[in-house]
């Protein structure tokens, strides 16, 4: 039973459907082992934004505050998209890479484990 309600056919209003975000999709990004950023970062992004642009234009504005950011060897970085291993195509757009509305992107940067190895 999807809900206990007085009305037997009660249906809830989906508050975060993609049509409400003015053409954008919501994407969450999590940098593993870097808890200085308490949660995955949430962004409303155009689905045709290239993955390369996400990496080089958007994320540095936020993750750039961390001393590990400049040390990342991107060739070593491992990605997950919605809990599945994933190899991004930097030229292609987010949607073309399979990134959907409310997708979670996680990346691990081997060898980098935050401030004094504390995963902060």
């Amino acid at each position: 039973m999807p809900v206990k309600a007085i009305a037997p056919d009660y249906v809830g209003e989906v508050k975060d459907s993609v049509d409400r975000f003015h053409g954008n999709i919501v994407v969450y990004v999590n940098w593993v082992d870097h808890l200085m950023f308490c949660s995955a970062l949430a962004f409303p992004l155009p689905p045709d934004m290239s993955f390369g642009s996400l990496l080089s234009d958007l994320l540095p504005q936020y993750y750039g505050l961390h001393p590990d950011w400049a040390r990342i060897d991107w060739a070593q970085a491992r990605w997950e998209l919605d809990r599945q291993p994933f190899t991004p195509d930097l030229e292609k757009g987010l949607a073309a890479n399979g990134v959907g509305h409310k997708s979670v992107l996680r990346f691990t940067t081997p060898g980098l484990t935050g401030i004094d190895g504390s995963c902060t």
Binding site: M1, P2, V3, K4, A5, Y10, V11, G12, E13, V14, K15, D16, R20, F21, H22, N24, V26, A42, P44
Partner: peptide
């Protein structure tokens, strides 16, 4: 009870929605 919680007013998404 998914039909209840799909209606959550999530502040971050509400900001994105304007």
């Amino acid at each position: 009870e998914p039909e209840k919680y799909v209606q959550a007013w999530l502040p971050v998404h509400q900001i994105f929605q304007g």
